[in-house]
Design a protein around this nucleic acid. Structure first.
Lengths: 91, 91, 91, 91
DNA sequence: GCTTGGGGCGTTCGAC
DNA sequence: GTCGAACGCCCCAAGC
């Protein structure tokens, strides 16, 4: 088995070229994760700022989540919850 | 309780100004989450590409994780931990 | 500072008596955590069994959560969510 | 879709028998969660007592955590080794 | 479908 | 007593 398009196995040697590729890949991944972390930081800031203006962060998150969710699924889920609650005699 | 600097509660009314702020906040959050999702997509691509070149994705993730963990450092707490560990006869 | 009633610091020596106490404390903690883990296991079983009977596990969890929450807080929370949603023009 | 072996959905009706089962399940879950909460309470007591004797609670927690980690550490490391070995096609 | 990793949430602890 | 930060717990989504 050569390494033209196949999985690198123990019988293969990681060539200098592959080493370079690996290094590049790891770097790209870590760069992207840095970016992701930066955005997470920005999000924290936005929420903190909102809180400072008197908004309820927890509720804010819920609103965002609700807007993200499919409305159909949402009502189905709600219906199921009510069904279960009724079955056991309310909460 | 007035709403001068306090948390906005359900008994309060959200004024027109606050509405604008809320909308802006939600928009910023959703924009940031879009960006985050885009980065996640890029990450997927990188991993897929790496896989196409024969690298083991699972291992790749582990390596990245390990490199992240490796940035952990312990201060004087470490000394205390060791002291306590000695006290009970090591691990 | 002596160790009569104060916090033990790294400059102090842990006496033989304290060693015994520490050992006992650790043992009690680890015993309790074992118990906790056992209960968590039982919970998993119950949910698995419920799932096997056709119940929706996710909904089950939500129902349990709802029952745990204070009803007053619950409706207040709901009201706030609706307030926010209205303010930004629905979802 | 009937409810013979499928997930109960909102379009179905929960029969009397299922109602009983549901109630039983919820009760078992809530009982288990009570037990879990009780243990958590015991843990708090132990830590409080230890603190009263001059031990550093934060460190105690760290020690317990470390001991927990160390118990699985060997097998985890072994797993990692095996993972890597697999990645290169076994030894 | 199960499992593992990541994200969110509530709680707790320390600082002010 | 309030606030913010850190921790552990729990849920969810993606991968195998």
């Amino acid at each position: 088995m050569a390494d033209d398009a196949a999985t690198i196995s123990s019988t293969d040697v990681i060539t200098g070229a592959a080493q370079g590729r690996l290094r590049t890949i790891i770097e790209r991944i870590e760069r992207l994760e840095q970016d992701k972390a930066a955005i997470a930081e920005d999000l924290k800031e936005v929420y903190a700022e909102a809180k400072g203006e008197g908004f309820d962060v927890k509720i804010l998150r819920k609103v965002v989540t609700l807007r993200k969710k499919d409305k159909v699924k949402l009502s189905e889920e709600q219906a199921l919850i009510e069904l279960y609650l009724e079955a056991i005699g309310g909460l």
